[in-house]
């Protein structure tokens, strides 16, 4: 998808926050708000972005923003949207930014309810693949093999033994008006999707991969590079669901090395060749389906 950097709002709406250096989540929030602009009300549950952005009197959102209950991102968004509309406002955006745990675990019920009702909201899941704010514990979106503090890698168990929950297709299965996947590594694509979502009526879900240098065990300067590599090596994909159809936005053709992607991260360093083979086999099986079914 095409986007023009110069068309982006020059204002900064997420600024002065205390996120770790190189935080992928903060980049996702910053970029999305620059698309949505000043007439935006943002809801963020307990989690990294609320912890780093809302410490009275250091308040880092330039637009209207509120922390919700951990499980309540989507339900509070529903109330905010309905309330602002009842106040007579038109032409505004109600956007939620929840992490992987806040979306796929504790917040999935409220998200499902909001999609079911068709509430006119944008829900963005910034996925850093574990509970990072509490110190790197496994979530439903932690990938197979990853070491977290609750899925330690030892001689018996090599980190997390379950694959990522498929939130993109779970959202799509509600027959949502618009769902998309993205990565902070390819911001043009992410920004275009946020812009597209902002023009669609009803519930919109965007799932953006947002590396966490602290939790992934990568240098703070490598966030964007790693966020590109995950797409290039086929362990993540850029896709959309609209009008009842899946669409693949980018086929890398020949994948970059998944092993290189994995081996450069501290959380995967313990993986055996067999573990990596398992990951690649599962990737190939998924892509076979994607290439056949998502035109």
């Amino acid at each position: 998808m095409k986007m023009n950097i110069n068309a982006l709002d020059r204002n900064e709406y997420f600024y002065g926050h205390k996120a770790c250096a190189g935080c992928g989540g903060s980049l996702a929030v910053r970029a999305a708000l620059k698309v949505l602009g000043e007439r935006t009300a943002a809801v963020l549950p307990a989690g990294c972005m609320s912890a780093v952005g809302f410490n009275f009197p250091q308040l880092c959102f330039g637009n209207n923003a509120i922390i919700s209950m951990f499980a309540g991102t989507a339900s509070m968004l529903t109330g905010v949207e309905a309330g602002l509309r009842r106040k007579g406002h038109r032409d505004f955006h109600a956007v939620g930014f929840a992490g992987d745990g806040g979306t796929a675990d504790i917040g999935i019920q409220a998200l499902s309810g909001a999609i079911d009702r068709g509430d006119d909201i944008i829900y963005i899941c910034y996925d850093n693949e574990a509970y990072m704010n509490t110190g790197i514990q496994k979530s439903g979106l932690t990938p197979y093999g990853a070491r977290t503090t609750t899925t330690p890698a030892g001689a018996n168990i090599h980190g997390n033994i379950r694959p990522k929950k498929n939130m993109f297709e779970i959202a799509a299965a509600h027959d949502i008006p618009y769902a998309a996947t993205a990565t902070v590594g390819y911001l043009n694509d992410f920004i275009s999707k946020v812009e597209k979502a902002s023009k669609i009526k009803g519930t919109k879900y965007i799932h953006v991969i947002a590396p966490c240098p602290t939790g992934w065990g990568i240098p703070v300067s490598d966030t964007v590079e790693v966020a590109r590599e995950i797409v290039d090596c086929g362990l993540w994909y850029l896709a959309e669901y609209e009008n009842g159809e899946y669409k693949l936005d980018r086929d890398p053709g020949e994948f970059a090395s998944a092993e290189n992607y994995l081996r450069r991260q501290g959380r995967f360093r313990h993986l055996t060749d067999q573990d990596i083979h398992t990951i690649i086999t599962s990737r190939d099986r998924k892509w076979e389906k994607i290439r056949k079914e998502w035109k």
């Binding site: 009300a41 809801v43 509120i66 919700s68 209950m69 499980a71 309540g72 989507a74 339900s75 509070m76 968004l77 529903t78 109330g79 905010v80 949207e81 309905a82 309330g83 602002l84 509309r85 009842r86 106040k87 019920q109 409220a110 499902s112 309810g113 079911d116 009702r117």
Partner: peptide
């Protein structure tokens, strides 16, 4: 009024808080 069919009591109150934060009676 907007009657919102929430999927749980937790969401009922969460939604009311959101609407109240928008400045309306709930």
């Amino acid at each position: 009024a907007e009657f919102i069919h929430v999927e749980s009591e937790h969401s009922a109150l969460s939604c009311a808080i959101g609407a109240s934060a928008a400045g309306v009676r709930t």
